[in-house]
Nucleic acid binder design. Structure first.
Lengths: 223, 223
DNA sequence: CGTATTCGATACATTAATGTATCGAGCATG
DNA sequence: CATGCTCGATACATTAATGTATCGAATACG
């Protein structure tokens, strides 16, 4: 055992559960590896933040070794950007799905909160990553515009849903729709934060169920 | 020049401008050093995040060398906590000041936004640090409760101001006051974020001047 | 089947970061 | 004014992290 020891991935059981560990043996190997690395990256970034991650921690979490990493990426920042990209895509897809599944009738201000809850996954990692992205964008001029563009794409989806919802409720915006959407997003994200922090007395449900409807009422008026 | 070279701080001109560089020569030296380290830490943490900071970067930014650091702290995390502590104190102090300077009359919903703007400094570093704190608290169980306690202290100040303001305006909360405060904070922080990100179409002023008053109107009712 | 190629595992050299130990200048106290 | 002590500068040893170079197994292709 002088040099080569084991060829198989270190320990498949520590890999991400989302992707079938040994999926379809004869598959495009590289793509699979990339995916597993990104999956692991989500977890590791969420847990330690962009600055607290090493190549080792990343590859170990994915069940690979340094070789796999440098074969697929050249820097941790690159991985981070790839993760951002993927998350954004997923988010937009969810948003579109949510639009399409808008209930035709039986629709109240309260249900907007519920819909919002389905647009983005409300798990811890998603939120942590979103915060991390924001921070990164705030710090690094060079990725800022890309990030902002993505956020704005999501906002325009929100605009769309919200505009439709208000109309359906027989109300119209008392302020530019964008500003109402922004308020919506602010409340949702802040609610997520307090929820995860476990701040006493306020829960996401309260925010979405009690506060949001009233706010929307205040920001709109009868047709 | 075998071992000892220069005794004076590397380069005082690179130090923080906030504290008189060679203030009162015969002063408590240690305290001064600590302060300068913390001042530098604010800048460095804001710029690189907790995970992107090394002892060297910190001490260099403060114009000291490693020795000063290890003499005052034993780990970067400790510095971070000290910074959090100091920022919180400052924030609370600002909040109290804002309360005391509440204008007696000539008071409208719009002026609440203006007051809010004076409670927290709206500079970039403050916001970046706040985000970083939140993230840190979300990740580290052991500091979470302390962080939450601080946040809640601030919230209760906000509650106080807001309650007084509404009363003075002849209105009363339509929802538990806490929830309204939380909404206020959500809008303010989110507004800060979009402001610093340079998201087009929405500015902090708009949020505080246009959106906030209407929201407060919607969340309260005439006495 | 055999051969070329791709991908990821491992080893190694290099650089960065840490923590400790030592030293001397300045300040305070007697 | 001398003596002790505190604090911060520097050097050094150690550990962590990086990036590159090499190799072999699996896959694709003929």
């Amino acid at each position: 055992m002088s040099r080569r020891a084991a060829t198989a991935p270190v320990d498949p059981s520590s890999g991400p559960p989302s992707v079938p560990p040994t999926a379809a043996a004869g598959r495009r190997r590289r793509e699979h590896t990339r995916t597993r690395l990104l999956d692991a990256a989500v977890r590791v970034f969420a847990e330690h933040g962009l600055g607290g991650v090493t190549v080792d921690s990343l590859t170990k979490a994915a069940g690979f070794s340094r070789g796999a990493f440098y074969s697929n990426f050249s820097t941790i920042d690159e991985v981070f950007l790839a993760v951002v990209d993927r998350q954004s895509r997923d988010l937009l897809a969810s948003a579109r799905t949510a639009i399409e599944s808008l209930p035709e009738s039986d629709f109240t201000l309260e249900s907007i909160g519920a819909i919002l809850g389905t647009i983005t996954p409300s798990d811890r990692a998603w939120f942590l990553l979103h915060e991390e992205f924001t921070l990164h964008a705030l710090r690094h001029e060079e990725v800022r515009s890309a990030y902002v563009a993505t956020e704005q794409a999501v906002r325009s989806e929100v605009d769309e849903v919200l505009g439709a919802a208000l109309t359906r409720l027989g109300r119209r915006p008392a302020l530019p729709l964008t500003q109402i959407s922004e308020t919506l997003v602010a409340l949702y994200l802040h609610g997520l934060g307090t929820e995860h922090l476990g701040v006493g007395g306020i829960s996401l449900d309260t925010v979405l169920g009690e506060v949001l409807p009233r706010v929307l009422l205040g920001l709109s008026e009868p047709l």
